[in-house]
C-alpha cells in the first residue's frame, strides 16, 4: 500500500463510514432499541389493559414477582425441555448425515436431491406446519391414527392432543424436522472448509473412516457446532408459532413456552402488560447470559492472537511511517 491509498482509505473517507451507517442506526434506534427500552420501562410500571400507567413505588416488584411465578417458570422449563428434545436428535442426525455426505471413501448418489428435500421443511410457514401437524395427529380419525391402526400398532386411536408427553414430543419433532436439514448443510460446508491436507495425513497414517470422523472432522467443526448451538438456542428460547398454533400451549400447559406465556399474559385475559414485559426482560437476560457464555467458549483463540499480532504490526508500521515523514 502506498501513501496516497492509505490516505484515500483512511482519513478523508471516514465520514462516509458514518454516513452509510446512518440508515441502519436510525432504524435500529426507532424500531428496536426504543421498543426494547420501552418494554423494559413497562416492566417497572403497572401498565395493564387500558388503565393509566404509573411507575411502581417499588420499581423491581414485577421482576421479583415474575421469578416466583410458577407458570412462567414452568414455561421456561417447557421451553428448555422441548428445545433439548429437539436439539439432541437434530445435531446427532445432522452429524451422521454430514459424515455420510462428506465421506471420501463412498460417495452417495443423489446428494443434491437429498439436501434439497431435507432442507425443504425449513422454508414452510410455521403456521402452516403447525396446523398441518395438528390435522395429521387428529383424534380419532387423523391420518396418523389411521396409520397406527392399519399397521396394527394400536387397536384404538390415541389422543395425541390431550397427552402431555405426546404433545411435547410432537412440538419437539416439528422443530427437529424443520431444522435438521439446515444444520446438516451448515455442518457439511464446515467439513468442506477443513483443509484436505489434514485428511491426507490421516490417510497416510492409516486412519479409518470412523477414526477420521472423530479425531479430525469433529474437532475441526467446533466453531460451526457452536454457531449452530447458539442460533438454535436463541431460536429455541423464542419458540412461539408452533406451540401456540399446534395445541394452544396445551394440554395442561405442557407446550406453553416462555414466548407463548408472554403472549397470553399480554394479549389475552386481563392484559397484564407489566408482567409480560418483566417476563420478556428475564427471557432476554437469560438469552444474553447463555449467548455470552457460548461466545466466550467459541472465541477463536488463534484468531485473537492473530488480531493482536496484526495490531502490533500496524502500530509498528505507523511508527515507521511517522518517522518517515
Amino acid at each position: 500500500m502506498n501513501k496516497s491509498q492509505r490516505h484515500l482509505k483512511g482519513l478523508s473517507y471516514a465520514k462516509y463510514g458514518y454516513l452509510f451507517a446512518i440508515p441502519f442506526i436510525v432504524i435500529f434506534l426507532i424500531f428496536q432499541l426504543y421498543p426494547t427500552l420501552y418494554t423494559a420501562f413497562i416492566g417497572f410500571t403497572d401498565m395493564k389493559g387500558v388503565n393509566p400507567v404509573h411507575v411502581l413505588d417499588h420499581p423491581f416488584d414485577n421482576f421479583k414477582d415474575i421469578v416466583h411465578n410458577q407458570t412462567f417458570l414452568k414455561s421456561l422449563r417447557n421451553t428448555v425441555v422441548i428445545w433439548i428434545m429437539n436439539f439432541i436428535p437434530q445435531i446427532t442426525l445432522a452429524l451422521i448425515l454430514t459424515a455420510w455426505f462428506t465421506s471420501r471413501t463412498s460417495k452417495l448418489k443423489g446428494q443434491g436431491f437429498f439436501k434439497v428435500v431435507f432442507y425443504m421443511p425449513n422454508i414452510i410457514t410455521a403456521a402452516t406446519i403447525a396446523i398441518l401437524f395438528s390435522t395429521l395427529f387428529g383424534f380419532p380419525t387423523g391420518p396418523v391414527n389411521q396409520l397406527l391402526k392399519s399397521w396394527g400398532i394400536r387397536a384404538t386411536a390415541f389422543d395425541f392432543m390431550t397427552s402431555k408427553s405426546a404433545s411435547k414430543l410432537i412440538v419437539a419433532f416439528i422443530q427437529f424436522w424443520t431444522w435438521y436439514g439446515n444444520t446438516m448443510i451448515l455442518l457439511v460446508s464446515g467439513v468442506l472448509g477443513i483443509s484436505p491436507d489434514i485428511y491426507e495425513a490421516a490417510d497416510i497414517d492409516g486412519a479409518n473412516g470412523v477414526q477420521t470422523f472423530f479425531r479430525i472432522t469433529l474437532p475441526n467443526l467446533k466453531t460451526v457446532l457452536l454457531y449452530t448451538l447458539i442460533t438454535s438456542m436463541i431460536g429455541g428460547l423464542n419458540m412461539f408459532d408452533i406451540p401456540l398454533l399446534f395445541n394452544r400451549g396445551g394440554p395442561d400447559g405442557a407446550t406453553t413456552t416462555a414466548s407463548v406465556f408472554i403472549y397470553q399474559v399480554a394479549f389475552t385475559g386481563t392484559n397484564l402488560y407489566y408482567r409480560a414485559a418483566a417476563a420478556s426482560m428475564v427471557l432476554f437476560v437469560i438469552v444474553l447470559i447463555l449467548s455470552a457464555i457460548l461466545f466466550y467458549l467459541m472465541r477463536d483463540k488463534d484468531a485473537i492472537a492473530m488480531e493482536k499480532m496484526k495490531k502490533a504490526e500496524r502500530k509498528k508500521h505507523k511508527m515507521k511511517e511517522r518517522r518517515g515523514f
Binding site: K48, N69, Q70, T71, D252, Q264, V265, T270, L272, R275
Partner: peptide, 21 residues
C-alpha cells in the same frame, strides 16, 4: 393425569400467574 385437588390448585395457580386474579 392428576387428582381433583391438584387440578383445582393448578387452575388457581395458572389463573393467578397469567391474569393476576
Amino acid at each position: 393425569d392428576k387428582s381433583k385437588e391438584a387440578a383445582i390448585k393448578d387452575f388457581k395457580t395458572v389463573v393467578n400467574d397469567k391474569f393476576g386474579i
